[in-house]
Design a protein around this nucleic acid. Structure first.
Length: 256
DNA sequence: AGTGCCGGGCT
DNA sequence: AGCCCGGCACT
């Protein structure tokens, strides 16, 4: 089963083989396509109803999201073509989302190089890749004190942060980070499902309900590892929870 | 023990 | 429909 999951992952979906675009240093300047990836196994059962996808064409297995999905990111994920113009004063930083990294760089290209080198183990001559690299980083709207708060806990100069905090921005009630998953070929990956990939886990884990276990016997969803309102905001800030969480229903804000 | 949320009750 | 919670699966 794990093997099946791995194979399906490696043959990842619908790569269109578009040439890799050259990246400028300024993110806002060249609005490269935000690529939404629907992995070969994703948003399966329950949450689907919330989004109203047509599941008929979905031969998937589950994906495991990692960072919580801020409300603001929802329409971002829905492919809003021209994301809001950034305030010129606001800086943009890119934070690595790989587990236990959290490195913050000021340019997307730098972040990609970082991920390629440090996490993907590829050499600097990047262009000869197999065209199937996934970069996981998040774009931080820095400029407010968000930035300072977030960065306060990072060691700014250390090339490889030894034990960086997971997601500093999550300490905010409404996180501002916008998770990116960028495929180097910029191929648009099919459907618009708000699927977020998580960096390849350090410990291999099986995509549990992937297979057509045609659930006869109410197999409870194997709990996703996304932090939900309860955990994010705490019991004493229940008023910040999404309504579903308040009603002890499946969280709507931080989807699995 | 803490968390996520299904199932079901009440209004 | 909105709201709440018992209780169970899962970590």
């Amino acid at each position: 089963m794990a093997a099946a999951a791995l194979t399906s992952l490696s043959t990842s979906p619908l790569l269109l083989g578009a040439p890799a675009a050259a990246f400028s240093t300024e993110a806002g300047a060249e609005p490269w396509k935000e690529v939404l990836v629907r992995p070969p196994g994703s948003c399966s059962s329950s949450s689907s109803g919330d989004w109203g996808w047509d599941l008929a064409s979905d031969q998937s297995s589950p994906s495991t999201p990692s960072p919580p999905l801020p409300l603001e990111a929802a329409h971002f994920l829905f492919g809003e073509p021209a994301p809001r113009k950034r305030k010129s004063s606001a800086q943009v930083l890119f934070q690595c989302l790989w587990k236990r990294c959290g490195k913050v760089l000021s340019t997307a290209s730098g972040m990609q190089r970082h991920i390629r080198l440090v996490h993907l183990g590829r050499q600097a001559e990047a262009e000869q890749s197999d065209g199937e690299e996934d970069f996981y980083y998040t774009e931080l709207d820095a400029g407010v004190d968000t930035l300072t708060r977030g960065l306060a806990s990072l060691s700014p100069a250390s090339p490889i942060a030894s034990a960086p905090p997971a997601f500093p921005s999550l300490e905010l009630p409404e996180p501002l980070a916008r998770p990116h998953v960028w495929h180097r070929d910029h191929a648009y990956q099919g459907c618009l499902a708000p699927v977020r990939l998580e960096p390849p886990p350090t410990t291999v884990r099986a995509c549990v309900p992937a297979l057509p276990t045609k659930l006869g016997a109410n197999p409870r969803k194997p709990r996703g590892d996304a932090k939900k309102c309860r955990k994010v905001y705490g019991m004493d800030h229940r008023d910040l929870w999404c309504t579903a969480c308040r009603w002890k229903k499946a969280c709507q804000r931080f989807l699995d």
